[in-house]
Amino acid sequence: MFPYEKYLRLDKFPHIWCTGCGCGIIMKAMLRAIEHSKIPKDSIALVSGIGCSSRTPGYVDFNTLHTTHGRAIAFATGLKLAKPELKIIVVSGDGDATAIGGNHFIHAARRNIDMTVIIYNNYIYGMTGGQASPTTPLGKKASTAPYGSIEPTFDISGLAIAAGATFVARSTCYHAVQIDKFIQKGLLKKGFSLIEVLSPCPIYYARPNREGTSVDMLRWYKENSIPIEVARKMSDTEKERKIITGILHNIERAEFCEEYRKLVKRVSKN
């Protein structure tokens, strides 16, 4: 029923993502959010880094910028400052955004520069063949953690909140209907908005860790996630190892381009 074709570069299909990969589900949610927020295609700039999720721009009919690994948000900062009327959306993976790209992620959040960052968190580096990422859970296997990862993981949403992001929401590919609501809120909010979406990687995460198919992973998300409203009333032990979904943070703070515009007004000649 939904007019996805209106937004797709149809000649690029079928896309390259593996069977059951969550990238397509999130891309769809993004398109619904854009449609509902009535943002014209010409004013959307979709910026991505390197990785599975970062192939999204190639498939959609916006101003699309596929940059270098981890640097999408840094490119996006330049884009937004140079052309503030552009609506900036960044799509990035858990590795792209918080491993190699972590520095740009926290600084853009600190500046509260107006962009909507969608992170496809599939717990692994998919494109390069299943290496461990900053969100590969403890004990889980990856091609570079054959004995199980011994590294504690990032709470990506928590990281964004701590760095200063003014809108942070988390969802999963099981809650596909909910994702576009959060993206839409992010789009319409002035400031650094993060939407973290847990996404199944059936080939490189689920299979080595015997977590079943994409269907099984979506069910796992359902059984292991709690909306924040409920989680607030639960004890830590009850919430332990659960995925807290919903709008985790939503505050107002000065937006960077706006502040820069004021500064120019104050000091510029004539």
């Binding site: 029923m1 939904f2 896309h15 993502w17 059951g20 990969c21 769809k28 209907v177």
Partner: peptide, 13 residues
């Protein structure tokens, strides 16, 4: 007509 299948389909298929 709940469209869940369409919303979920990762392949736009």
């Amino acid at each position: 007509g709940c469209q869940l299948c369409e919303i979920y389909c990762p392949d736009f298929a």
